[in-house]
Amino acid sequence: MGYAHYEIIRNGQTIQAGYSVPTTCERTSCNEQIDRGLAHLCGETPGGDQHGCGGYFCGNHLHMNANLAASGFACRACNDRYDAQHPEEDEEVSVDAMVVTFN
């Protein structure tokens, strides 16, 4: 199976997905042209999973959550839902990825 065009079931409906399937951002009132590829996916799994709703969003409406770093990106609603369910994981995150000292 390639990722250019395939079908998924999301919320009980079969939809076309893949990076060759054009669509618009699913954020209300956003008309940004995107595709239904993995780069625009909320969560890890097309169709939705525990990390995201499976919606497709433009770069302005898809966000990295420091606590979800392993699972990629999520829309604001899914990020907020995760943060509310896991308040103990909220911590100060450094903007520096790494500090290296050379001698």
Rank of each mutant, 00 (worst) to 15 (best):
N60S: 12
E7P: 01
S71N: 10
Q13H: 08
D35F: 12
G43F: 10
P22L: 08
I9R: 14
R36W: 15
G55L: 11
Q33R: 08
G72C: 11
V100Y: 14
A84D: 00
E44A: 14
Q50D: 11
T45Y: 12
F73I: 01
D90I: 05
G18W: 11
H63W: 11
C30A: 05
T28R: 04
E91G: 09
R81P: 00
V100H: 09
N67G: 13
D80Q: 02
M98E: 06
E92V: 05
G43P: 06
I34M: 12
D83T: 03
Q50Y: 05
H5W: 06
G12W: 14
H40Q: 12
A17T: 01
Y6I: 01
Y56R: 03
N60V: 00
I34H: 13
Y19F: 15
A77E: 13
G52E: 03
E32D: 11
A84K: 00
H51D: 05
L62W: 09
Q33M: 06
G55E: 04
R81C: 02
H51N: 07
D96Q: 03
D96E: 09
V100T: 06
P22D: 08
D96T: 01
R10Q: 14
M98W: 07
N103G: 12
L38M: 15
N79E: 06
Y56K: 04
R76F: 05
C42S: 15
Y19P: 00
Q16M: 09
A97L: 02
C42I: 05
N79H: 05
R81V: 00
N31A: 08
P22C: 02
